[in-house]
Computed example of a mutant assay.
Amino acid sequence: MKPTYLNCLSLLGVGGAHPGGLKLTKDILLKEDIDKTKKALDIGCGTGQTSAFIANQYECDVTALDSNYVMLEKSRERFSELSLSIDIVHGYVENLPFENLLFDLILSESVLAFTNTSKSISEVKRVLKPCGVLLAIEMVCERELSNEARTEIQDFYEVSHLLSENDWITIFRANGFGQVNVEKVKLKNELNDLDNTAEFSLSENIPDDCFYILKKHEYFTDLYRDSLGFRIFRCNI
């Protein structure tokens, strides 16, 4: 397996890697109307942390999708330990293996930025019901970066572009989402808050490169803390 940032997340089994972790996810979902009748899709589900929470908390129908088989296996182990009946699907957001108008709620937690964004958003819109909601926590570029910095970030994270808040809004609207609400959240670093920290489910024989890449991610996070942020996008058709 190539030692990329995303592959290292899978080998380390990082859950809650997105900004704000599970705590932010819970806060976002509290504002939504979710009950047993709803169908939810967690794209880029990773180790299944969010999918498990939704299934436990709301007892609704949950589908967990990821393109990484290691992540899906760790999701499967989590769901089995918790006795949760969650559909696990291997697939790519740019070509979702679902019929049209299927889901009431779709979550993307630091996922769309790592895909062909326009194709992915178009696919999400296709499988979302007319009154459905897309909730996306995504990286945004807060200020203009030098060409050198932009290239360094894009190469490390393997993303084709770095989008501003307005760029994201434009792409969401261009792909069928008429209403896009944006929330900027300032995270609190609360000690002893397990929901606000990443969890790890380690694979066997993790190469040393993975720990180097994790350290480099931490370095970039600090170096570009004023240039890269995130937003919560709530999108309706």
Rank of each mutant, 00 (worst) to 15 (best):
K2N: 15
P3D: 11
T4C: 06
L9A: 03
G16T: 01
G16S: 07
G20P: 12
G20V: 12
G21H: 05
K26Y: 02
K26V: 07
D27T: 09
L30Y: 02
D33W: 04
K39R: 15
A40G: 08
A40F: 07
L41W: 04
D42S: 08
G44E: 14
T47D: 11
G48P: 01
T50K: 01
A52E: 10
A55I: 02
A55L: 06
E59N: 14
C60R: 04
L65W: 00
D66H: 05
D66S: 10
Y69A: 13
M71H: 09
L72A: 05
R78E: 00
R78I: 01
F79H: 07
S85A: 13
D87V: 04
H90Q: 14
E94W: 01
N95S: 15
P97N: 06
P97A: 07
N100K: 11
F103K: 05
F103N: 06
I106A: 08
E109L: 06
E109V: 09
S110D: 00
V111C: 11
L112H: 06
L112T: 05
A113C: 09
F114E: 02
F114S: 08
T115Y: 00
N116P: 00
K119D: 13
I121R: 04
S122I: 09
S122W: 14
K125G: 02
R126K: 13
L128V: 01
L128R: 02
C131N: 13
G132E: 05
R150Q: 07
T151N: 15
E152N: 12
V159K: 01
H161N: 15
S164L: 04
S164M: 07
E165K: 09
E165S: 13
N166S: 15
D167Q: 05
T170K: 14
I171H: 00
A174F: 06
N175L: 01
F177C: 02
V180K: 11
V182E: 13
V182S: 10
K184Q: 12
V185D: 03
V185T: 07
V185A: 05
L191A: 09
D193P: 03
L194C: 14
A198P: 06
F200E: 06
L202F: 11
S203H: 00
P207A: 10
C210A: 10
C210Y: 11
C210N: 05
F211P: 00
Y212L: 12
Y212Q: 13
I213L: 06
L214P: 02
E218L: 11
E218Y: 15
Y219L: 02
Y219M: 02
Y219G: 03
Y219Q: 07
F230N: 01
R231M: 12
R231D: 08
N236A: 11
N236C: 13
